[in-house]
Amino acid sequence: MSDVILQTRDLTKEFRGFTAVSNVNLSVQRGSIHALIGPNGAGKTTCFNLLTKFLTPTKGIIHFNGTDITSEEPAQIARRGVIRSFQISAVFPHLSLMENVRIALQRKLGTSFHFWSSERSLDKLNGRAVALLEEVGLAHLADEITLNLPYGQKRALEIATTLAMEPELMLLDEPTQGMGHEDVERVTQLIKKVSAGRTILMVEHNMKVISTIADRITVLQRGAILAEGDYQTVSQNPQVMEAYMGTTDGQLQGAH
């Protein structure tokens, strides 16, 4: 059996009587791409917020690398290597791609807020910044102003800034949302590429993306786990088809 990097037990979040996440037992294998899917309002984003402690669970336990992190603050969890894309991927539109990645890298130096330091003091980060841009296919645009990028390349830059934090577990919240077909294809392949040697937990609506790259899928409905398994298992589950399509004879492939 593979090594489990993240595990939850009876993870639950209630809001004034409404249960958004209900007794979720999640198990993410190290080195896998694990997708969290479900209809709108299924509790996917709430689950992400609980894992990164942007919300406090009503009950339940979260283990990361075998350590109970349930009571830790978001910053402590990030330092452990659980990095959620939006936390540090709010890219600065008027800075270059290189400057955006260097800012993300600064956090490892412990000089994040030394804005008065000479810019030359950051030159030692240039090599790593270029390598990260190379990894996401943007090295040729290192000096381009981020504002000028098309949407798909901005998302690729966000992935580069996430990688700069050296995540052990990357949480990607709908990485292909709002993209055209070409960008979806490009970012899907990029996620597959950067997953080598890393673990990714992602929320994603696009079933083609899920079928292409996810090793394991957890389906949520009304805050609870409805089904779990590989794409073939999940896509043929009548309950999952009904949750997505409102019918048991529909095809999950058509759901987004």
Rank of each mutant, 00 (worst) to 15 (best):
V130Q: 10
A131H: 09
L132E: 04
L133C: 10
E134K: 15
E135M: 09
E135N: 14
E135Y: 15
G137Y: 12
L138A: 10
A139D: 11
H140G: 14
H140I: 08
L141R: 15
A142S: 14
A142R: 07
I145R: 09
T146K: 09
N148D: 13
P150A: 04
Y151T: 07
Q153M: 15
K154Q: 12
K154A: 11
A156F: 15
L157D: 06
L157T: 01
L157Y: 10
E158H: 08
I159Q: 06
T161G: 05
T161N: 06
L163N: 00
L163R: 07
A164C: 15
A164W: 13
M165N: 12
M165E: 04
E166V: 05
P167A: 11
E168F: 05
E168S: 05
L169H: 01
L169I: 06
M170V: 09
L171P: 02
L172I: 00
L172F: 07
L172D: 00
D173I: 11
D173F: 07
E174D: 03
T176H: 01
Q177S: 14
G178S: 11
G178W: 08
G178D: 15
G180K: 06
G180E: 12
G180T: 12
E182F: 09
R186E: 14
V187G: 00
V187E: 00
V187D: 00
T188L: 11
Q189H: 03
Q189P: 07
Q189Y: 07
L190N: 02
K192F: 10
A196R: 15
A196K: 15
G197V: 06
G197T: 05
R198W: 10
R198I: 08
R198Y: 04
T199Q: 03
I200A: 00
M202V: 11
M202S: 07
V203E: 00
V203M: 05
E204T: 04
E204N: 06
N206F: 03
N206M: 06
V209N: 03
V209W: 03
S211T: 05
S211W: 02
T212E: 13
T212P: 03
T212K: 15
I213L: 03
I213Y: 12
I213K: 05
A214E: 01
D215L: 09
D215Q: 07
D215Y: 11
R216P: 14
I217W: 04
V219W: 00
V219T: 00
V219P: 01
L220S: 04
Q221N: 14
R222C: 10
G223F: 02
A224C: 04
I225T: 12
I225W: 00
I225N: 01
L226S: 13
A227Q: 01
A227T: 01
E228Y: 11
E228L: 12
D230G: 04
